[in-house]
Design a binder for these strands. Sequence first.
DNA 1: TTGTTTCAGGAACAAGTGTATCAGAAGAGT
DNA 2: ACTCTTCTGATACACTTGTTCCTGAAACAA
Lengths: 209, 209
Amino acid sequence: MPRVSDTRSRILNFIRHFLDRRGYAPTVRDIARGCNISTPSVVQYHLNMLEEQGFIRRDPAVFRSIQLVERKREAISRVPLLGTIAAGSPIPVPAPDSWTTTPEETLQLTGELTQDKKDIYALRVKGTSLVDAFVDDGDIVIIQQITTVEDGELAAVWLKTRQEVTLKKIYREKGRIRLQPANKTMQPMYFAPEEVEVQGKVIAVLRKL
Amino acid sequence: MPRVSDTRSRILNFIRHFLDRRGYAPTVRDIARGCNISTPSVVQYHLNMLEEQGFIRRDPAVFRSIQLVERKREAISRVPLLGTIAAGSPIPVPAPDSWTTTPEETLQLTGELTQDKKDIYALRVKGTSLVDAFVDDGDIVIIQQITTVEDGELAAVWLKTRQEVTLKKIYREKGRIRLQPANKTMQPMYFAPEEVEVQGKVIAVLRKL
DNA sequence: TTGTTTCAGGAACAAGTGTATCAGAAGAGT
DNA sequence: ACTCTTCTGATACACTTGTTCCTGAAACAA
């Protein structure tokens, strides 16, 4: 048991909160003020200890350079919001070079949602044509750009003859393709393989309210 | 067309890279050095412009306080997944002290989804009782724990007499409460105010596939 | 005791750093 | 040409801030 109720961890917590609240690191004197320490030198002492113990990292002689080792850059992927998905209009499949051009907007998602997959883009749903996939007007679908999907996976498909885009579970059957709505109470549709063009695989849907 | 290939965007990019590489913000002079600008005052000028235009935020007289507005929403919050939401069982409202206890699981979400709100938890949907809110079995609803919501907001409500939980848009009317399904084709339901208990406000729905 | 380690307090220095001011150049529009 | 806005340059000031040096108290071990 430490002598005081551990100044050290109090300092660590103060740094955490300061970073959360202000967005940049505190100075020695900020910490002193926040932890009721009367002088910078004491803070300096503890910071040196914390750095030795591997809790923080600092660049010498650089102001506000304290970094928390525990805040290892979490994997955030920036997913481009490339446009809208509507029943009557084709999905705007991104050109290979357009990944770097400025999209309409960018979503910041954790790897938990993107499942760390590559070639991902997002589309905003316009209209209520996708209600049979439990997707409402204004929802955002996250799509991985691939041309073939496994049986049973939810795919974004373009129906050539109908000039229509839809989200359906796809099943290959003998000589035809079955498109099954996510809503189990609804009936499947059948198409010739050449009528169906898989634009991508839906890996997530999100709705902000 | 700007004279040079826009010093401003060069500065912005430099700040981005500096933050990524060093973990803290550059000083005026760091930027000057990195962008081949001969004097701090020019950088200062452009930083003021960038702040006016809403690209960055700075705290006056605080060293290394430049923050990229575009990364404001990057903060990852850990949202506890507290259980399931099913038609027949009450929503497991977290006890005030249980926030720190270990939840079933934890979601990592960016501020973009949590909208930087407080007192947020997540529930996994079990069953198809919420289809009228376009919520499917297995979806995850993000809920902010508040007891009153604005008219028209999607709320998680417990219907006492029915012993049932549902997600509905809530409207206060004279002497009664109207619960409107998110699906506009469906009919509203009416209840006496004391029958309806608001458990929280739905701020997002997400579906991982 | 004695010595050693850890922690707190005070003061001061030197460098880093935001900022203001003045001056002037370069375009754009009239 | 003229004015106006936008941008660049140089210098200087004042404050912020990392750092060092000193003193001293408290705990612990030999």
